[in-house]
């Protein structure tokens, strides 16, 4: 009933995710029991099930473990400088308004190094889909303290425990004006996929935080076992409360993780506001950029 398949045979290409990945780069570099691969699989499934045009989908990543996603997915991709994924994605969206621009990056990249870009993209309601994989630590660079590390958690730069208050990311995004805010752990695969599918169909600044285990640094430095134990922890302690006030969804060290879709509303995006404003002020002199972009096609 089961077949164990030789990797050189055709079954590798039969994997349902293979049309979305650059299979020559797999196996990936992520550690055993890391959760980022699961998030990638959920995103690929959401792309598959919504049936978006893959030629008009692009993915932008910064630096870090999660930043490798841009290299592994078979989409037009930017692998940008540290923290600057959102500025690159903003430029891409303004230059080619028809594209579905997804930013797929980590917590240290998007809200640590690039926190300023994050809040201003949310304030302007740029038409971007932000997938933030939160593993509570700077993984690739060696376990430094991140802006999301919970109080009392150890990291390699805080060996006696963290004393800084961490960001409450859904509240940060919602208070800056994001139109879609959700948080899941990477154990909630069906709900996460559904959330991706909803967000793909929306406009505006869509923010999805995914809690993922980091076995090599966060779990090891805090003596929590491996990512497998953290997945069991999410199973026992993740609480789905979609009507929660985003002010109350702080993450304490090894405490309840409140998941759900917190914000879902419609607001005009940056491009719509700009076009409307200039059409009012300048009238027929203003010609908005066509969806397929301007300069390259002339």
């Amino acid at each position: 009933m089961s077949t164990t398949v030789d990797p050189n045979q055709v079954a590798v290409d039969e994997h349902p995710v293979s049309p979305f990945l650059r299979m020559d780069r797999i196996p990936h570099i992520w550690c055993p029991t890391c959760g980022i691969g699961t998030v990638v699989k959920c995103f690929a499934t959401a792309l598959d099930e919504t049936g978006v045009d893959l030629d008009k989908t692009s993915i932008v990543s910064g630096i870090g473990c999660t930043g490798r996603v841009a290299g592994y997915m078979k989409l037009d991709a930017f692998h940008t400088t540290h923290g600057r994924a959102i500025p690159f994605a903003t430029g891409l969206k303004l230059g080619r308004p028809e594209l579905l621009v997804t930013v797929f990056s980590g917590d240290g990249d998007l809200v640590g190094i690039g926190g300023n870009h994050f809040i201003h993209a949310a304030r302007r309601n740029m038409d971007l889909m932000i997938i933030l994989v939160n593993n509570f630590i700077y993984g690739m660079t060696g376990g430094q303290n991140a802006p999301t590390t919970p109080l009392k958690a150890r990291s390699s730069t805080m060996p006696f425990g963290n004393f800084e208050r961490p960001f409450n990311l859904p509240h940060l995004a919602a208070s800056c004006g994001a139109t879609y805010v959700a948080r899941w752990t990477c154990l909630h695969i069906r709900r996460l996929t559904k959330s991706f599918k909803e967000a793909i169909r929306r406009k505006g600044f869509r923010f999805i935080e995914v809690i993922a285990p980091c076995s090599t640094l966060y779990a090891r430095l805090n003596k929590l076992g491996t990512g497998f134990n953290l997945m069991q922890f999410y199973h026992d302690n993740a609480e789905i409360r979609p009507d929660a006030d985003t002010r109350d969804v702080d993450i304490e060290f090894q405490d309840n993780i409140i998941c759900g879709k917190f914000v879902d509303e419609e607001r005009p995006t940056f491009t719509e506001m700009m076009n409307e404003h200039y059409q009012q002020k300048l009238g027929d002199k203003y010609v908005p950029l066509p969806p397929e972009g301007g300069l390259l096609h002339e």
Binding site: V5, P7, V12, H15, I26, P27, P32, L187, T226, Q232
Partner: peptide, 19 residues
């Protein structure tokens, strides 16, 4: 269904076994 396992790509995390 029938399970297909690509053994050389596996890193032994045990998620599939657990869930």
């Amino acid at each position: 269904g029938e399970v297909r396992i690509i053994a050389d790509r596996c890193k032994g995390c045990g998620f599939c076994v657990e869930y």
